[in-house]
Write a protein that binds this DNA or RNA. Structure first.
Length: 373
RNA sequence: GCGGAUGUAGUUCAACGGUAGAAUGCGCGGUUGUGGUCCGUGUGACGAGGGUUCGACUCCCUCUUUCCGCC
């Protein structure tokens, strides 16, 4: 079995499991930092290994637009190219329909994107997307989906669900075809859309489940809906998705939001939040969020987090990291990013431990209290 | 000493005889499948004195600041 749940928490739906890919296995739940263009911004592969990050996610469309996909292909795959010893996911680029700078339009056959570098107009079909992700040779690929905006009407979101199901079928068929001969197979996840509407989410999930994907992603959250709306849908989908398939809540990176979703049975997470926020001076700590750029930290000799044992917190002051971020120095970004990723990694390792000990509910509560403002 | 220029927000610059703008900085929020160094918001100024005028940051005079040139 590619995915095996190994422990179920008594009080919540939180679970621990093992995901097996062609590049090794990893314990769930886990969080993947975003390595859109083949690098987790500011961090080296050695940093990631040191932190204990096993999985990162890259972006097939962005790599393709920057000629990265062909370079990666020459290397035989993204892991070798970026010297990543673990597992690699790729996102399809469906999310980039959210980005007006590169998205043009879409129809039933695919999506028009413009290359921001050359100005060239490109048509990405679901078939093409599968080919790019296989060129990149990630361990887990995502279907090309259609991203509705949070502000869209229910009709528009229903249309996105229709198109996402249509493309999922094409993706699945083409993906199977392309790697018929392959011994080590790339996994493929379907992406459930439907916004905050239970009926649309249900339809989307059932359409995808009938195609039998290796895992199911929940897309379209973190874009303006309330957490209440989000968790209601996650709860609902957890009941529909087969227990032996991993659930991946795409784009969610807020610490408490992750833990809450774990309590509802989610297995996989990714987000740009820890890396992007680090560069902007927003740090995660054991005592809540730290806005490092505030003047009160100007002379602070304290570490970012006094309860953290990462090398940044053992060696560097808030004042130093703040000063280097203020001056746009690479080292400032690196130290802040390292800490945020470390924090999230340790948090999720603790979460797995607490699930195994059946103490997850208390841990969640404790973290919720710390992150209240 | 003589001549010329100059003085507006912490800083760099606008505008206008009739409620002084921006950028940047600083403060406070935000940031969620990364076209990225982002977004929102707040704070904050007419060198001093006199004159002309209904009204002067604006025009005139004096002083003063800073800069340039010449002795």
């Amino acid at each position: 079995m590619p995915f095996t749940p190994t422990h179920q928490d008594f009080e919540t739906l939180a679970r621990v499991g093992i995901l097996k890919t062609k590049s090794g296995e990893v314990e769930t739940p886990f969080f993947m930092p975003v390595a859109t263009r083949g690098v987790v911004k500011s961090l080296s592969a050695e940093d990631l290994q040191e932190i204990g990050i096993k999985v990162v996610i890259s972006n097939a469309l962005i790599l393709y637009l920057r000629n990265g996909a062909e370079i990666v292909k020459k290397f035989g795959g993204i892991r070798k190219f970026m010297n990543h010893k673990g597992i690699n996911f790729t996102d399809s680029g469906g999310f980039q329909m959210y980005s007006p700078r590169i998205y043009i339009s879409s129809n039933d056959k695919g999506v028009f994107f413009k290359n921001p570098i050359s100005g060239e107009k490109l048509f990405i079909t679901p078939e093409k997307d599968m080919e790019i992700q296989l060129d990149i040779n990630s361990d887990v690929a995502m279907c090309l989906d259609t991203m509705p905006m949070y502000s869209h009407s229910k009709e528009e979101i229903a249309e996105a669900v229709r198109k996402t199901s249509l493309w999922a079928e094409i993706c699945k068929k083409h993906h199977d075809e392309l790697q018929k001969e392959n011994q080590e197979k790339q996994m493929l996840f379907g992406i459930i859309q439907g916004g905050i509407y239970e009926d649309l989410r249900e339809k989307s999930a059932k359409d995808l489940i009938s195609l039998n994907f290796d895992g199911y992603s929940i897309g379209g959250f973190g874009l303006g809906e309330t957490r209440e709306e989000e968790f209601k849908i996650v709860e609902q989908l957890k009941k529909i998705v087969p227990q032996d398939k991993p659930i991946y809540l795409m784009g969610i990176g807020d610490p408490v939001e992750i833990l809450k979703a774990i309590s509802l049975g989610v297995d996989i997470f990714d987000s740009r939040m820890p890396t992007q926020n680090a560069r902007r001076g927003m740090l995660f700590t054991s005592e809540g969020k730290l806005r490092l750029m505030k003047e009160e930290h100007k002379f602070s000799e304290e570490p970012l987090d006094k309860n953290c044992d990462c090398f940044v917190c053992k060696n560097y002051s808030r004042a130093f990291i703040r000063y280097q971020l203020l001056n746009d120095e690479a080292v400032g970004k690196k130290l802040a990013t390292y800490h945020n990723i470390y924090f999230l990694q340790k948090m999720i390792e603790t979460a797995r431990k607490k699930i195994k000990e059946n103490k997850f509910k208390d841990f969640l509560k404790e973290m919720e209290e710390k992150y209240q403002e």
